[in-house]
Protein backbone atom coordinates (compact mmCIF):
# COMPACT_ATOMS: atom_id res chain seq x y z
CA UNK A 1 0.00 0.00 0.00
CA UNK A 2 2.76 2.36 0.94
CA UNK A 3 4.66 1.39 -2.14
CA UNK A 4 1.64 2.01 -4.31
CA UNK A 5 1.24 5.41 -2.71
CA UNK A 6 4.91 6.10 -3.28
CA UNK A 7 4.63 5.17 -6.96
CA UNK A 8 1.51 7.23 -7.57
CA UNK A 9 3.06 10.25 -5.95
CA UNK A 10 6.04 10.06 -8.25
CA UNK A 11 4.47 8.77 -11.40
CA UNK A 12 4.64 12.12 -13.20
CA UNK A 13 8.29 12.53 -12.41
CA UNK A 14 9.10 9.10 -13.73
CA UNK A 15 7.21 9.68 -16.93
CA UNK A 16 9.15 12.91 -17.32
CA UNK A 17 12.34 10.91 -16.83
CA UNK A 18 11.37 8.42 -19.51
CA UNK A 19 10.38 11.13 -22.00
CA UNK A 20 13.60 12.95 -21.29
CA UNK A 21 15.55 9.78 -21.94
CA UNK A 22 13.81 9.26 -25.27
CA UNK A 23 14.63 12.83 -26.29
CA UNK A 24 18.23 12.62 -25.17
CA UNK A 25 18.66 9.31 -26.94
CA UNK A 26 17.31 10.81 -30.15
CA UNK A 27 19.79 13.67 -29.93
CA UNK A 28 22.82 11.48 -29.32
CA UNK A 29 22.03 8.41 -31.38
CA UNK A 30 20.50 9.90 -34.50
CA UNK A 31 22.64 11.35 -37.25
CA UNK A 32 20.11 13.44 -39.13
CA UNK A 33 20.45 17.09 -38.10
CA UNK A 34 16.74 17.87 -38.28
CA UNK A 35 16.03 14.77 -36.26
CA UNK A 36 18.55 15.91 -33.67
CA UNK A 37 16.73 19.22 -33.33
CA UNK A 38 13.46 17.36 -32.93
CA UNK A 39 15.12 15.24 -30.26
CA UNK A 40 16.16 18.40 -28.48
CA UNK A 41 12.54 19.49 -28.60
CA UNK A 42 11.34 16.28 -26.98
CA UNK A 43 14.05 16.65 -24.37
CA UNK A 44 13.11 20.23 -23.55
CA UNK A 45 9.38 19.57 -23.54
CA UNK A 46 9.91 16.78 -21.04
CA UNK A 47 11.63 19.31 -18.78
CA UNK A 48 8.61 21.59 -19.12
CA UNK A 49 6.44 18.72 -17.96
CA UNK A 50 8.68 18.26 -14.96
CA UNK A 51 8.48 21.90 -13.94
CA UNK A 52 4.74 22.09 -14.35
CA UNK A 53 4.38 18.91 -12.33
CA UNK A 54 6.31 20.51 -9.49
CA UNK A 55 3.83 23.35 -9.36
CA UNK A 56 0.65 21.29 -9.30
CA UNK A 57 -1.38 21.49 -6.13
CA UNK A 58 -3.96 18.77 -5.62
CA UNK A 59 -7.42 20.20 -5.64
CA UNK A 60 -5.98 23.46 -6.86
CA UNK A 61 -7.09 25.54 -9.76
CA UNK A 62 -5.31 27.57 -12.40
CA UNK A 63 -3.54 30.54 -10.82
CA UNK A 64 -6.03 33.12 -12.02
CA UNK A 65 -8.14 34.76 -9.39
CA UNK A 66 -11.71 33.64 -9.57
CA UNK A 67 -14.31 36.36 -9.87
CA UNK A 68 -15.60 35.61 -6.40
CA UNK A 69 -12.13 35.88 -5.03
CA UNK A 70 -11.66 39.21 -6.74
CA UNK A 71 -14.85 40.53 -5.22
CA UNK A 72 -13.71 39.32 -1.87
CA UNK A 73 -10.39 41.05 -2.32
CA UNK A 74 -12.12 44.29 -3.27
CA UNK A 75 -14.08 44.22 -0.06
CA UNK A 76 -10.90 44.25 1.92
CA UNK A 77 -9.08 46.73 -0.16
CA UNK A 78 -9.53 49.63 2.22
CA UNK A 79 -8.00 47.56 4.95
CA UNK A 80 -4.90 47.11 2.94
CA UNK A 81 -4.60 50.82 2.34
CA UNK A 82 -5.08 51.64 5.94
CA UNK A 83 -2.07 49.64 6.88
CA UNK A 84 -0.14 50.68 3.94
CA UNK A 85 0.70 54.30 4.09
CA UNK A 86 0.95 55.72 0.61
CA UNK A 87 -0.47 52.78 -1.21
CA UNK A 88 2.57 52.47 -3.41
CA UNK A 89 3.81 48.93 -3.52
CA UNK A 90 7.14 48.68 -1.92
CA UNK A 91 8.28 45.09 -1.86
CA UNK A 92 9.66 44.21 1.47
CA UNK A 93 11.59 41.45 3.00
CA UNK A 94 9.40 39.61 5.31
CA UNK A 95 10.03 37.91 8.49
CA UNK A 96 7.24 35.91 9.95
CA UNK A 97 9.00 35.98 13.26
CA UNK A 98 8.27 39.66 13.59
CA UNK A 99 4.66 39.25 12.78
CA UNK A 100 2.14 39.72 15.43
CA UNK A 101 -1.17 38.18 14.74
CA UNK A 102 -2.90 41.47 15.24
CA UNK A 103 -2.22 42.30 11.65
CA UNK A 104 -4.15 39.39 10.46
CA UNK A 105 -7.64 40.03 11.53
CA UNK A 106 -9.69 42.03 9.17
CA UNK A 107 -7.82 40.86 6.16
CA UNK A 108 -9.26 37.41 6.26
CA UNK A 109 -11.12 35.07 8.45
CA UNK A 110 -7.99 34.51 10.42
CA UNK A 111 -8.79 31.08 11.66
CA UNK A 112 -5.31 29.73 11.89
CA UNK A 113 -3.13 32.13 13.72
CA UNK A 114 -0.72 29.67 15.11
CA UNK A 115 -0.01 28.12 11.77
CA UNK A 116 1.29 31.38 10.40
CA UNK A 117 4.72 30.40 11.55
CA UNK A 118 5.36 27.64 9.04
CA UNK A 119 5.04 30.20 6.29
CA UNK A 120 7.86 32.16 7.80
CA UNK A 121 9.63 33.90 5.02
CA UNK A 122 12.90 34.10 6.68
CA UNK A 123 15.08 35.80 4.15
CA UNK A 124 18.70 36.54 4.24
CA UNK A 125 20.16 38.52 6.99
CA UNK A 126 19.19 41.66 8.69
CA UNK A 127 17.31 43.81 6.23
CA UNK A 128 13.87 42.99 7.40
CA UNK A 129 11.00 45.35 7.50
CA UNK A 130 8.22 44.41 9.71
CA UNK A 131 4.94 43.58 8.16
CA UNK A 132 2.69 46.00 6.45
CA UNK A 133 -0.64 44.99 5.11
CA UNK A 134 0.96 42.96 2.37
CA UNK A 135 2.93 40.91 4.71
CA UNK A 136 0.10 40.09 6.90
CA UNK A 137 -1.98 39.06 3.93
CA UNK A 138 0.66 36.61 2.97
CA UNK A 139 0.85 35.04 6.30
CA UNK A 140 -2.81 34.86 6.85
CA UNK A 141 -3.44 32.96 3.75
CA UNK A 142 -0.66 30.60 4.50
CA UNK A 143 -2.34 29.98 7.72
CA UNK A 144 -5.60 29.22 6.05
CA UNK A 145 -4.03 26.68 3.87
CA UNK A 146 -3.01 24.73 6.79
CA UNK A 147 -6.10 25.44 8.67
CA UNK A 148 -8.19 24.00 5.92
CA UNK A 149 -6.20 21.11 4.71
CA UNK A 150 -4.57 19.71 7.79
CA UNK A 151 -6.00 21.44 10.75
CA UNK A 152 -4.50 19.31 13.44
CA UNK A 153 -0.90 19.07 12.43
CA UNK A 154 0.24 22.60 12.91
CA UNK A 155 1.23 23.68 16.28
CA UNK A 156 3.49 26.34 15.02
CA UNK A 157 6.22 23.96 13.99
CA UNK A 158 8.29 26.47 12.15
CA UNK A 159 10.05 23.91 10.06
CA UNK A 160 7.12 22.00 8.76
CA UNK A 161 7.12 23.72 5.42
CA UNK A 162 10.72 23.69 4.62
CA UNK A 163 11.44 20.34 6.06
CA UNK A 164 12.52 17.71 3.62
CA UNK A 165 10.00 15.85 1.62
CA UNK A 166 9.10 13.25 4.15
CA UNK A 167 7.80 15.63 6.72
CA UNK A 168 5.83 17.40 4.10
CA UNK A 169 4.37 14.09 3.10
CA UNK A 170 3.20 13.42 6.57
CA UNK A 171 1.50 16.72 6.89
CA UNK A 172 -0.08 16.22 3.53
CA UNK A 173 -1.58 12.96 4.56
CA UNK A 174 -4.57 11.84 2.62
CA UNK A 175 -6.08 15.26 2.49
CA UNK A 176 -7.96 17.27 -0.08
CA UNK A 177 -10.51 14.58 -0.38
CA UNK A 178 -13.72 15.43 1.28
CA UNK A 179 -12.77 14.62 4.81
CA UNK A 180 -12.54 18.14 6.08
CA UNK A 181 -15.81 18.88 4.50
CA UNK A 182 -17.48 19.19 7.84
CA UNK A 183 -14.89 21.49 9.19
CA UNK A 184 -15.11 23.75 6.22
CA UNK A 185 -18.84 23.74 6.26
CA UNK A 186 -18.98 25.06 9.77
CA UNK A 187 -16.98 28.11 8.86
CA UNK A 188 -17.79 28.46 5.24
CA UNK A 189 -20.88 30.47 5.37
CA UNK A 190 -18.55 33.21 4.18
CA UNK A 191 -16.19 33.13 1.28
CA UNK A 192 -13.51 30.40 1.08
CA UNK A 193 -10.40 31.26 -0.76
CA UNK A 194 -9.78 28.81 -3.55
CA UNK A 195 -6.59 26.83 -3.70
CA UNK A 196 -4.34 27.83 -6.59
CA UNK A 197 -1.57 25.89 -8.25
CA UNK A 198 1.89 27.37 -7.98
CA UNK A 199 2.30 30.08 -10.62
CA UNK A 200 6.09 30.24 -10.50
CA UNK A 201 6.90 27.11 -12.56
CA UNK A 202 4.39 28.35 -15.13
CA UNK A 203 6.23 31.64 -15.38
CA UNK A 204 9.57 29.90 -15.76
CA UNK A 205 8.31 27.52 -18.40
CA UNK A 206 6.71 30.29 -20.42
CA UNK A 207 10.19 31.74 -20.68
CA UNK A 208 11.74 28.36 -21.39
CA UNK A 209 9.28 27.61 -24.21
CA UNK A 210 10.29 30.79 -25.95
CA UNK A 211 13.97 30.04 -25.44
CA UNK A 212 13.38 26.56 -26.82
CA UNK A 213 11.73 27.75 -30.00
CA UNK A 214 14.50 30.32 -30.50
CA UNK A 215 17.10 27.58 -30.29
CA UNK A 216 15.07 25.43 -32.67
CA UNK A 217 14.95 28.24 -35.20
CA UNK A 218 18.71 28.83 -35.10
CA UNK A 219 19.45 25.10 -35.25
CA UNK A 220 17.22 24.59 -38.25
CA UNK A 221 18.69 27.61 -40.03
CA UNK A 222 22.10 26.05 -39.51
CA UNK A 223 20.84 22.75 -40.88
CA UNK A 224 19.64 24.54 -44.00
CA UNK A 225 23.02 26.21 -44.44
CA UNK A 226 24.77 22.88 -43.95
CA UNK A 227 22.53 21.32 -46.56
CA UNK A 228 23.50 24.09 -48.97
CA UNK A 229 27.19 23.73 -48.29
CA UNK A 230 27.47 19.96 -48.12
CA UNK A 231 24.45 18.58 -49.93
CA UNK A 232 23.48 16.45 -46.98
CA UNK A 233 22.35 16.73 -43.37
CA UNK A 234 23.44 13.26 -42.27
CA UNK A 235 26.20 13.49 -39.72
CA UNK A 236 28.05 10.44 -41.02
CA UNK A 237 28.12 11.80 -44.54
CA UNK A 238 29.22 15.22 -43.31
CA UNK A 239 32.12 13.63 -41.52
CA UNK A 240 33.08 11.64 -44.58
CA UNK A 241 32.91 14.74 -46.76
CA UNK A 242 35.19 16.65 -44.40
CA UNK A 243 37.62 13.78 -44.22
CA UNK A 244 37.74 13.39 -47.99
CA UNK A 245 38.35 17.10 -48.40
CA UNK A 246 41.06 17.04 -45.80
CA UNK A 247 42.88 13.75 -46.11
CA UNK A 248 41.57 12.33 -49.32
CA UNK A 249 40.24 9.32 -47.44
CA UNK A 250 36.83 8.67 -46.04
CA UNK A 251 37.94 7.43 -42.66
CA UNK A 252 41.28 8.72 -41.40
CA UNK A 253 40.34 8.10 -37.78
CA UNK A 254 43.06 5.52 -37.41
CA UNK A 255 45.61 8.10 -38.50
CA UNK A 256 45.15 10.76 -35.90
CA UNK A 257 42.63 12.51 -33.78
CA UNK A 258 42.99 16.13 -34.68
CA UNK A 259 42.44 17.63 -38.07
CA UNK A 260 45.00 19.06 -40.38
CA UNK A 261 44.89 22.75 -40.77
CA UNK A 262 42.52 24.65 -42.89
CA UNK A 263 43.86 26.00 -46.05
CA UNK A 264 43.52 29.49 -47.34
CA UNK A 265 40.11 30.88 -47.80
CA UNK A 266 38.87 27.64 -49.18
CA UNK A 267 37.61 24.63 -47.35
CA UNK A 268 39.41 21.57 -46.30
CA UNK A 269 42.81 22.69 -47.45
CA UNK A 270 41.97 21.56 -50.94
CA UNK A 271 44.77 23.30 -52.73
Amino acid sequence: MDILQFVIERFNYWIFTVLMMVGLYTVIARGNLVKKIIGLNIFQTSVFIYYISIGKVSGGTAPIFTTEHQKELKKHEHHGDAHHGDGHQVPTHQDGGHQDTAHQDGSHQGDAHDSADPMTMDLHAGDLHAGDANTSATLTRAGEHHGVSTPDLHDGDANALHAPANDALVSQGGDHGGDHGGEIATKATEFIEPLYSNPLPHVLILTAIVVGVATTAVGLALAVRIREAYGTIEEDELETADNVAEFGVADPRQQQDGGQGAGRLNPGGAQ
Binding site: F43, V47, I54, L222, R225, D242, N266, G268
Partner: peptide
Protein backbone atom coordinates in the same frame (compact mmCIF):
# COMPACT_ATOMS: atom_id res chain seq x y z
CA UNK B 1 35.68 30.82 -45.47
CA UNK B 2 35.35 27.22 -44.44
CA UNK B 3 32.11 25.29 -44.45
CA UNK B 4 33.22 23.29 -41.46
CA UNK B 5 32.33 26.31 -39.36
CA UNK B 6 28.70 25.39 -40.01
CA UNK B 7 28.97 21.87 -38.67
CA UNK B 8 31.10 23.13 -35.80
CA UNK B 9 28.40 25.64 -34.94
CA UNK B 10 25.70 23.00 -35.19
CA UNK B 11 27.55 20.66 -32.86
CA UNK B 12 28.08 23.54 -30.47
CA UNK B 13 24.38 24.30 -30.63
CA UNK B 14 23.39 20.72 -29.82
CA UNK B 15 25.91 20.33 -27.00
CA UNK B 16 25.23 23.81 -25.68
CA UNK B 17 21.48 23.28 -25.63
CA UNK B 18 21.90 19.94 -23.91
CA UNK B 19 24.12 21.68 -21.37
CA UNK B 20 21.62 24.47 -20.80
CA UNK B 21 18.77 21.99 -20.44
CA UNK B 22 20.73 19.90 -17.96
CA UNK B 23 21.29 23.08 -16.05
CA UNK B 24 17.55 23.75 -16.07
CA UNK B 25 16.83 20.24 -14.81
CA UNK B 26 19.34 20.75 -12.01
CA UNK B 27 17.73 24.06 -11.21
CA UNK B 28 14.31 22.42 -11.13
Amino acid sequence: ADRRALTASFNYLVMGTLGATFFVIGLG
